[in-house]
Design a protein around this nucleic acid. Sequence first.
DNA 1: CCATTCTTGTTTGTATGCGAATGACTATCA
DNA 2: TGATAGTCATTCGCATACAAACAAGAATGG
Lengths: 148, 148
Amino acid sequence: MQISAETGHIEETPYQVERQVGFLLRQANQRHVAIFSNIIGDKLTTTQWSALSKLQQNQPCSQNQLGRETAMDVATIKGVVDRLVKRGLVATVPDMSDARRVVLSLTQQGEEVVTENRQAARAATEETLSPLTSGERMIFLELLQKLC
Amino acid sequence: MQISAETGHIEETPYQVERQVGFLLRQANQRHVAIFSNIIGDKLTTTQWSALSKLQQNQPCSQNQLGRETAMDVATIKGVVDRLVKRGLVATVPDMSDARRVVLSLTQQGEEVVTENRQAARAATEETLSPLTSGERMIFLELLQKLC
DNA sequence: CCATTCTTGTTTGTATGCGAATGACTATCA
DNA sequence: TGATAGTCATTCGCATACAAACAAGAATGG
């Protein structure tokens, strides 16, 4: 909304959904997910990759903690972890000192999967950012981080 | 990957999921969705708003067409439209000239909902972008558009 | 005009993603 | 210590999101 210098009236910028941040964020995310799954294949989703990759950094880790660090709801992280456990990439052990907690860690196979796919994940990032120049990427990532 | 001026070796940038575009896009989108639903309430989701708002611009419109214009899969747009129809915001009529097609249009109530919530949608956009200065917003939106 | 091909809409299956409720356990503080 | 508050994991319900398979209709070329 702006005030016109001529009329002094409030001027409505025409509202176009396709120009709104929300719409664009959703689309950009969709594009990235598509690129990621083209490169990685159907083995791993972006969300699963986040969980595995983050778990490797913070091993061992409780389920909710991992959810917090990957920005996933408790209900969401449970589903993700369940599928990773079923596929033998993540192991769960009950916590000795806290009976509520489930302690997560990568299995041997999980470690291998993370190692094997790191270059592919880098490639996905690269391709997603490919429409931007090197300088634009720096700026974009900086601004994007402010919106999180 | 960069080449060090000192060693001449290829240096691996340490891989951190939380710094990757994909991770940040997902988070930024989550934040926007949360802001939107705080402002609009549980009446409408971001996706439903996109569909309604776009439909108002392009009335009447076939279902798949609307999906294409809102960047939604055929299966996704069907679910969205079904829910909007069930709530009386969208009406469907069979197309005379093409028996496959379902022609969509806003109902009276649908028109009202779009009109009533446009300011709120603007406010959601505004709040999502609030961490950025006016100049940064222009740059960010421009770069984001290139990634779609 | 007929066969091939494309498009439209539907359904199924899998995977996020969140709100809200629940049960079990821990921590805290009066 | 005993009530209260907070945390962890689970579950349910709803809403995207996409791949894949399908049926019916439309469009095209031969």
